[in-house]
């Protein structure tokens, strides 16, 4: 056996499943540092912020009683994203445990992710109409931090969605994922769960505290 055969299959791609998984986890560690940097930036700027928080006149995102319509929307939206993690788990159970195609729960996951993104887009436009945006003139760092952080997160959700759709198409066209073969699906799953986890932190920092 040559080392080339040991580490790869003939096409020189696709490390062994455990190696691929390990690599994905390393990558997610790096992603975690990216979000940590953004969230620490937000925390530092917010603590150092003179005057009111949120700035006078800016829409308040936080969950405060009595709940506003926006509060309800974002709470539900968060549940939507979180539940997509569970539906993804359902995909994995279907494929790995029961040897099924898992197409239906995969579709549900994609749908939930899409709904999340759409709602977030709606929230952005809503806030824009209320006068909040990236730039300094529009509620300063309050807006900057919010849009940049949720923007980065939204982009990750978007990439995750593309990956899910790619999995879906592969499953539809080639039936790529079976009880034995599900490396790519596993790694997409790790990524998707990670993105959900980040949302929990973002939500806590921006919408609760």
């Amino acid at each position: 056996m040559t080392t080339a055969e040991l580490t790869h299959d003939e096409v020189h791609q696709g490390a062994t499943p455990s190696t691929a998984r390990f690599g994905m986890i390393m990558f997610l560690l790096s992603e975690a540092m990216l979000f940590a940097a953004l969230l620490i930036t937000y925390t530092v700027l917010r603590i150092g912020h003179p005057g009111d928080w949120p700035p006078h006149g800016a829409p308040d995102l936080r969950v405060r009683f009595p709940l506003t319509m926006m509060n309800y929307v974002m709470i539900i939206n968060s549940f939507i994203l979180i539940s997509s993690s569970f539906t993804f788990h359902w995909v994995e159970v279907q494929i790995k445990k029961h040897g099924k195609s898992g197409l239906f729960p995969l579709l549900v996951t994609i749908a939930l992710g899409t709904v999340f993104l759409c709602v977030q887009g709606w929230e952005w436009s809503h806030l824009y109409e209320e006068g909040m945006w990236f730039s300094k003139e529009m509620y300063g760092i309050y807006g900057s931090c919010f849009f940049v952080t949720t923007g980065f997160h939204g982009m990750h959700v978007f990439v995750g969605l593309l990956l899910l759709i790619w999995c879906f198409l592969r499953q539809v066209c080639f039936g790529s994922f079976t009880q034995k073969h599900h490396v790519a699906l596993d790694n997409v799953g790790l990524y998707w769960h990670f993105v959900d986890g980040v949302w929990l932190v973002v939500y806590t920092l921006f919408y609760i505290i």
């Binding site: 040559t2 080392t3 080339a4 055969e5 040991l6 580490t7 790869h8 020189h12 791609q13 490390a15 190696t19 691929a20 690599g23």
Partner: peptide, 8 residues
């Protein structure tokens, strides 16, 4: 080893 884990 024969190569890196992820040559691509």
């Amino acid at each position: 080893a024969g190569d890196m884990a992820f040559p691509l």
